[in-house]
C-alpha cells in the first residue's frame, strides 16, 4: 500500500541531494523484514522518476538478510519472519538486521540512451 509514497520519497530525496544534476543509478537497500515490497517499489520507480532528475535512471535494490539474536540463549540466526523462533524454542528475539530501508548511493550522469540495460 505505501510503496508508491516511499518511492516518491526516494526520488525526492535523491533529486534534492543531487542538486539539479542528472542521476542515472540509485542503489537502495531493503531488509527482507522491512515491511516493503521491493517489486512494488521497482514497479513504481520509472513512473515516479519521470520528469525528475532521475528520469530513466536504473534502480538497483540490494536485499539485506534478516538476522536476529535470541535473548534467551544468545544464538544468532536468519529470520524468515518476524516471529521465527530460535532453535532453542524462544520467540524472544532481538532483530539485528533486516529492517533496512535506505538509499545507499546514487550515480551522477545522464542515463545511457541505449535501451539495453533497461529493466535490468
Amino acid at each position: 500500500m505505501h510503496e508508491l509514497g516511499l518511492t516518491r520519497e526516494i526520488v525526492a530525496m535523491v533529486a534534492g541531494h543531487a542538486g539539479g544534476r542528472r542521476v542515472r543509478r540509485v542503489v537502495l537497500e531493503v531488509g527482507t523484514l522491512a515491511g516493503v515490497m521491493t517489486d512494488a517499489v521497482a514497479f513504481c520507480f520509472d513512473a515516479v522518476a519521470e520528469g525528475t532528475a532521475l528520469e530513466g535512471a536504473v534502480l538497483e535494490i540490494r536485499r539485506v538478510e534478516a538476522r536476529g539474536r535470541c535473548r534467551r540463549c544468545g544464538a544468532e540466526f536468519v529470520r524468515e519472519t518476524l516471529h521465527s523462533p530460535c532453535a532453542c524454542g524462544s520467540f524472544d528475539v532481538e532483530g539485528l538486521t533486516g529492517a533496512e530501508l535506505r538509499v545507499l548511493s546514487y550515480e551522477i550522469g545522464a542515463p545511457e540512451a541505449a535501451a539495453e540495460g533497461q529493466g535490468a
Binding site: M13, V14, H17, R102, L104, S105, Y106, E107, I108
Partner: peptide
C-alpha cells in the same frame, strides 16, 4: 545539500546512506 555543485563528472557515485523514512 551539497553546495559544491561543481564538476562532479558523470559516473561519480555519491554515498548517501539515508533512511527513506
Amino acid at each position: 545539500h551539497p553546495h559544491d555543485h561543481v564538476h562532479l563528472p558523470d559516473g561519480t557515485v555519491v554515498e548517501l546512506q539515508e533512511s527513506v523514512l
